[in-house]
Design a binder for these strands. Structure first.
Length: 303
DNA sequence: TACCAGGTAAAAA
DNA sequence: TTTTTACATGGT
């Protein structure tokens, strides 16, 4: 039941998460995949634009109530919007139980995933942002892509309480190619981004329809867009939509981590990864995600 | 300094 | 149809 929060004149919403869910583990896992950041505490901060207004949503555990999640905003915005965004990002509707039942048949894997009980992948607020991220990360190092995105965000995004709202498609469609290039994008990538942003702004393209498509149809749709090849399509399915059965089998990290926990400790070939994951349909993506998280969280204890 | 890093579209062969 | 090329930044 949405409530006015008198102290802040904002909105507070309790989230409806399909259990099991562990917010703390999910937050630690998500941060372990990001470049090192200043300490951010136990709160997830989501900057979004809602009804033309920049809004900061904060998600945290209700006081003393382990299973209750609270999303709040200081800005005055409809509870339904806060709920929709937070439940999308946290993957509220994902039911982990069938995955856990599947994994108990393999004691070795069950031992790896047990400490992560309740872990769900987090998804970016918008698929437009995800698509731009995919383009920036093509070919160049993640560090280089991160720098380019920082400049894009500071130039075309909006600040809200020390966070930044990722640029609207409108802002990037209006940007000149020179402006985009000055952020560090190649001529080619600037065109991809401008074209994508223009299609979305004009209403020709709605990336949210991907949410209603099965994996193959979504992949095919993304690859129909200029600038998006096989790698980018898979990247969006895995990271942007967190499809439970999707795995980036060419990814070096995935090949290493599957080898570490399910193989001979060596990095495997893409073919071997495909074969070894076969029995774990339709949760191959969740399994790969758990193994990556187990690996990352071990390497960076205390984060 | 030179090379490579979680690619892609377009040109050339 | 398959192979080659240009492209931009940051780390090593």
């Amino acid at each position: 039941m949405p409530k006015r929060n008198d102290a802040t004149d904002g909105m507070v919403v309790s989230l409806d998460m399909v259990r099991p869910y562990d917010f703390a583990v999910s937050l630690r896992s998500m941060r372990s995949f990001q470049p090192a950041q200043p300490e951010q505490g136990n709160t997830l901060r989501l900057a979004a634009r809602i009804d033309e207004i920049p809004v900061l949503i904060e998600v945290s555990q209700g006081p003393g109530i382990k299973n209750k999640l609270i999303a709040s905003s200081v800005q005055n915005v409809r509870a339904s919007h806060i709920r929709r965004i937070a439940e999308w990002v946290l993957f509220a509707e994902l039911d982990l139980m069938p995955f856990y039942r599947l994994i108990t048949k393999n004691p070795k894997l069950a031992a790896v995933t047990h400490p992560l009980y309740g872990l769900k992948p987090m998804r970016p607020i918008s698929l437009f942002e995800m698509a731009v991220v995919a383009i920036t990360e093509q070919q160049i190092s993640l560090a280089a892509a991160y720098g380019i995105r920082s400049r894009l965000i500071r130039r075309f995004g909006e600040p809200i309480n020390n966070e930044w709202v990722f640029p609207e498609s409108y802002a990037l469609s209006k940007a000149t190619l020179e402006e985009l290039r000055s952020c560090g994008l190649s001529r080619q990538k600037s065109q991809y981004i401008q074209e994508l942003a223009s299609k979305i702004t004009s209403g020709t393209l709605d990336l949210d329809v991907l949410k209603t498509m099965d994996d193959d149809k979504a992949r095919e749709t993304i690859m129909g867009l200029r600038g998006f090849g096989r790698w980018s399509a898979d990247y969006i399915l895995v990271r942007g939509l967190a499809r439970p059965d999707c795995v980036p089998i060419d990814d070096l990290g995935v090949r290493s981590v599957i080898g570490e926990y399910m193989g001979n400790a060596e990095r495997l070939s893409s073919l071997e990864v495909t074969r070894i994951l076969e029995p774990f349909r339709p949760y191959r993506g969740i399994l790969a995600f758990y193994l990556l998280a187990a690996h990352r969280l071990k390497l960076t204890p205390g984060r």
